[in-house]
């Protein structure tokens, strides 16, 4: 997974999103130990202070927790991960409907199109 960072949003929020995505996609499993701040910062090619800030924020949200001396771990709260997955999915759907509205499709029409396209798709 490449860390592609956009230029119009704070970097630490984008780092948070990447790690969240890593958690819900199963790249990081519940209870897994996260790499060190330094290693993660190097991987993402960002300042370690920024990575630290992102992880502190995830910790505040309960997505990761620190075990004294042994490092940072992914939450074992499966419900929280499921909720996160759902809320991210919702965000994408809302965004999609908004885009479709901009190009002139009502919600009803959009749903019809989705059903039609889904039949042809083979993923």
């Amino acid at each position: 997974m490449a860390w592609e960072l956009k230029s119009d949003r704070p970097i630490y929020t984008q780092l948070q999103d990447y790690i969240k995505l890593g958690i819900i996609s199963g790249r990081y499993l519940p209870g897994d130990k996260l790499p060190s701040v330094r290693d993660l910062a190097e991987e993402a090619a960002v300042n370690p202070n920024t990575m630290q800030k992102a992880l502190a924020e995830l910790e505040r949200l309960g997505m990761v927790y620190t075990q004294r001396t042994s490092g940072r771990f992914i939450t074992e709260d499966i419900k929280m991960i499921e909720d996160l997955k759902e809320s991210i999915a919702k965000e994408h759907i809302t965004e999609f409907f908004e885009t479709m509205k901009k190009i002139g499709f009502s919600i009803q029409e959009t749903i019809q199109m989705i059903e039609k396209e889904a039949k042809e798709l083979t993923i």
Partner: peptide, 15 residues
Amino acid sequence: SVDDIRSQEGKSVDA
């Protein structure tokens, strides 16, 4: 701070 610029101005430092 770079974060403040990005969140307050909605643009990169470069911009």
